[in-house]
Design a protein around this nucleic acid. Sequence first.
DNA 1: GCCTTTTGACTAACTGGTTAGTAAGTACTG
DNA 2: CAGTACTTACTAACCAGTTAGTCAAAAGGC
Lengths: 203, 203
Amino acid sequence: MADSPNRTAADPNEEIMRATYRALQEHGYADLTIKRIAEEYGKSTAAIHYHYDTKDDLLAAFLDYILDQFQNTVHEVETTDPEQRLDLLLDKLLVDAQDHLDLLVAMLEMRSQAPYKEAFRERFQQNDEYVRYMLSTVIDQGIQDGVFNDVDAEHAARALMTIVDGGRTRAVVFNEEASLATARQTAEEYVTAVLAVDQSGDG
Amino acid sequence: MADSPNRTAADPNEEIMRATYRALQEHGYADLTIKRIAEEYGKSTAAIHYHYDTKDDLLAAFLDYILDQFQNTVHEVETTDPEQRLDLLLDKLLVDAQDHLDLLVAMLEMRSQAPYKEAFRERFQQNDEYVRYMLSTVIDQGIQDGVFNDVDAEHAARALMTIVDGGRTRAVVFNEEASLATARQTAEEYVTAVLAVDQSGDG
DNA sequence: GCCTTTTGACTAACTGGTTAGTAAGTACTG
DNA sequence: CAGTACTTACTAACCAGTTAGTCAAAAGGC
């Protein structure tokens, strides 16, 4: 109703977000300029400035755009069984990331600017809280179901996010997907050795 | 012998490294310019270019300078008892970092540029291999001493480094030392629940 | 007098952002 | 349906500031 589903959706904002994404893939954040976004957009730099007053405004909007997409994919995980759900969430966070390595690079660049750009920090913080809430909720569920030990779910969620962020950082710095696989395995070990109740007596 | 220990050591290279360090603390890597380094150096920008042809040359030298310092502090850990030694190493990697948060920020910025600057990547890789070697060696020692399970020491070292890098990344992005403490605790949990042999039968 | 070091003045390229102006579409009015 | 007003979307030209890097000349130590 509101938006007509034309082919290639002529909404300028959406187009600029897509152009920013492509420019980011090709040049990285450090070399991202309005001009390069404009080239991807196929219009002049002033056209960009017509829609976004400053570069920072555009980048803040881009973070909203991209983190919203990410949260939607995380939201898709619908299994209710705690152990399986936690596994699927960790897959989303670490395995799926392998298909967007260039985005992972750009995101680490932007994350490293969080100390200087409050708009960035706020958005990354909000996103982190969302994911942590998903994790601690499923961990709490596992505790109630008796499949997880009675640990501090908040801490366990932070621990898993630390492993996730470590794997992502290392994948970018060392340019190797294997870092994501290592992190995935480490997360699994944490779940098995710290969270899961010991059933060795049931043999 | 080789270097005369004058007060304020008049060695230009050393002075420029120190100036770079200060400029990095004050402006961060993204806003680090030759001009700003020169201001800290107290000389002109051309004076910097006399000692280093390009900005990249200078930054590569700076990474050598700073990572060498870091490796020296890690090398100081002299305890031989595996469990205690691993604890002290993790303290060096996570607890001591709290005193150099601004450096942690700059280092994450530089790490995020590894995909674009091979000189950076090489140095971070070499540094990581050094620390991982220290970790896997002490883990192997613990296995031989019978205090650690017979795990893959190489993997365990990578797992711990993943937690370390995760803690550091999160400390920078969210501007909170607590992320380092959480990572330290997570590393401890990993050591206790995955590495340490289970002595519950001895009580 | 020579060699290292440093300076000041410079350049060419690029940065984000501003401006006036244009063209097309939409909405209101009588 | 014609005329007016306004909005959206854009362009070309331009600006002031910053960047890394160059070069001839000068300063300073031995």
